[in-house]
Design a protein around this nucleic acid. Sequence first.
DNA 1: GAGATTATGTCAGTACTATTGACGTAATTT
DNA 2: AAATTACGTCAATAGTACTGACATAATCTC
Lengths: 162, 162
Amino acid sequence: MSVEDGIDFAIIELFFFAYRDFTSDPDQILADYGFGRAHHRVLHFVNRRPGLTVAELLDVLKITKQSLARVLKQLIDTDHVVQLQGPRDRRQRELYPTAKGRALALALARPQSRRIHAALEDSGATERTLVERFLEAMVNPELRAQIDVGSAKMSGKSHGEH
Amino acid sequence: MSVEDGIDFAIIELFFFAYRDFTSDPDQILADYGFGRAHHRVLHFVNRRPGLTVAELLDVLKITKQSLARVLKQLIDTDHVVQLQGPRDRRQRELYPTAKGRALALALARPQSRRIHAALEDSGATERTLVERFLEAMVNPELRAQIDVGSAKMSGKSHGEH
DNA sequence: GAGATTATGTCAGTACTATTGACGTAATTT
DNA sequence: AAATTACGTCAATAGTACTGACATAATCTC
């Protein structure tokens, strides 16, 4: 089983290395903007689920509003994200990426996407759904709802936009 | 292909959620010791590759020695790790886990291992090697050497301990 | 309509992990 | 003997996170 004491050290370690390198690509780009990983995460989800509220964003990221405040303010000040008053509830702030924000989100996602495609090919294609299923199964069951919401589920053609 | 603009947002997001929950299990235990994720990583690798030197550890973790210093000192002060003068080169400090350190490393790895096994089962067994290959392929090629070194490669029976 | 609750923003203080730069000491290499 | 290497340490800074407290405006409830 490739384990010691029933512990799967191999995958534990691989997961660490894989995630470290996975995040290193965008980190380089972010540095040019004076942004960090927190900005990336916020921009990513605003871009993915345009119109989501501050509360929804906090729930997805699992951070406090004080932590979000600085990062979100910077993204707004630099014209990557805009806030619009909620139509139904005027207390809410709906978050949308600007064209500039979408461009940056895309630039950040590109190298990550390239790495994923290369890894899928290297490990022998057709495994896309298997990898997706594995990663999804790694997420806490209670939180899986967050994933498929605006993300056009996993399988089919995507329609998360428009 | 489940992508927009050729970008694989689905797996990018899944990877984020999966890693977040993957690290949340040990985080809870670490809090009881006043330790953080940095302590976990150091303890993990000292436990995995007993006898590695400070320089090797820095290379694996890709952090600076100033960052390591505080964390390592705490692990030594709390009797989780010991330093022994290198046999060949007396400038080097070989790092070893104590019994206490091994116990903690195991306690931290257990919930992660459980999560991995559950995820492998949920996603339809026999995929262990596929997941391993995918994760390994996600790591920068230059850095893959670090992985198989003391980790008894992926496949076969492990022999890193004894 | 008054009061409670909700959504968001903000101020203050703290913790953890990481960084760069500089300097010191002992051991090894040249 | 001099240069280099391995490690340790001091100081200053940055990024991301936290808790607690308080403010404002909007919505909901009775």
